[in-house]
Design a protein around this nucleic acid. Structure first.
Lengths: 172, 172
DNA sequence: CGCAATCACTTAACATGTTAACCTTCTGCC
DNA sequence: GGCAGAAGGTTAACATGTTAAGTGATTGCG
């Protein structure tokens, strides 16, 4: 265990990157998703498609921009996925008459039915995780993650992005 | 704030998915990476390419499989990225004479130079995050994430994956 | 030895992430 | 009204994630 670097070639001292925050978050997330993907896959759903269906089931009719924010997807990804889900008749969409730029999306009966089929095993897996890790500890973890999010959102990027410090509309 | 679902269409009660663990982890990670990407991008590096260079700088010569484990990348991604990095002369590779299946990869002087150029701003950003969030709290968060990883790794998948309960070689 | 199974990648194919460019529709303003 | 600029989405282009299949080298074993 602890396979520390055998020798350091770089002259600049750097944290062991395998212990960096991005890597920790990546590994943790992968550890979680690893358990969900097989179930979703058996129903021909990707993680992102599932997120969209769930978001729609919870929100009813909703604009695409708002859906992107909730499901945490960028516009281009969302466009592609919605096109596919619409073809599969799992969602429906129509223009907003008062503003033809806007699209309203909603889940279909078929989509709801699919959710009802997939949700049980999905919930079971989540429940098992909660039991194993501890509901209390899980809540603490989520609280810290949220705190981190808020903290980082207040931190300026090295770009020139400090415009509009309140909008917070960009999922990425 | 707290844009709770307007109405629930699904009959099955489900956690508000925006508060699910996968989403929390995804948002947190994106919040972190958002600050690093501009700097990396200005040097024509993606997040994954950067991970590989750093891993090689820390490990010296290393086999591809081991690199995949350390940089947490799947084989196919790694193949593509290494091909690109090799063309850019940032890494070098050669076959292991004793086993022609194996490839040994290492970072070049040019690669090391690039790291020396990028690392300072990268470290500065990480330092700023640490300062803002709190070093103590950050350590706690990482500890919890690691605990979660270990916990989930011990949990069987719904597949038939409970073979070899100790290998732990799959990045994904 | 010889050959089936395994190993270490690599390719292929499809889905998403990410950024930039584009197209329409709206808004604000003269 | 008319036009510049902004807003909402989509398309394009390229990189990675993810799974399955393919390729060449090696190992185990009869």
């Amino acid at each position: 265990m602890t396979p520390v670097s055998k020798r350091t070639l770089a002259k600049i001292p750097m944290r062991d990157f395998s212990q960096s925050l991005p890597m920790s978050l990546l590994r943790a997330r992968e550890g979680v998703m690893r358990h969900f993907r097989p179930s979703l896959r058996s129903h021909d759903l990707t993680e992102q498609q599932w997120r969209i269906l769930r978001a729609l089931a919870a929100s009813g009719e909703i604009e695409i921009t708002e859906l992107a924010r909730i499901a945490f997807l960028l516009g281009p990804s969302l466009s592609r996925i919605l096109r596919d889900l619409e073809q599969r008749k799992l969602i429906a969409r129509h223009l907003l008459k008062s503003d033809l730029r806007r699209n309203i999306v909603s889940i279909t009966a078929k989509g709801l039915k699919l959710i009802e089929v997939v949700a049980p095993s999905s919930e079971a897996i989540y429940g098992e995780m909660t039991k194993r890790f501890g509901a209390q500890k899980l809540a603490e973890l989520q609280a810290m993650l949220h705190e981190l999010e808020v903290c980082l959102h207040a931190m300026p990027t090295e770009d020139g992005d400090d415009a509009d410090p309140q909008a917070d509309n960009s999922p990425a």
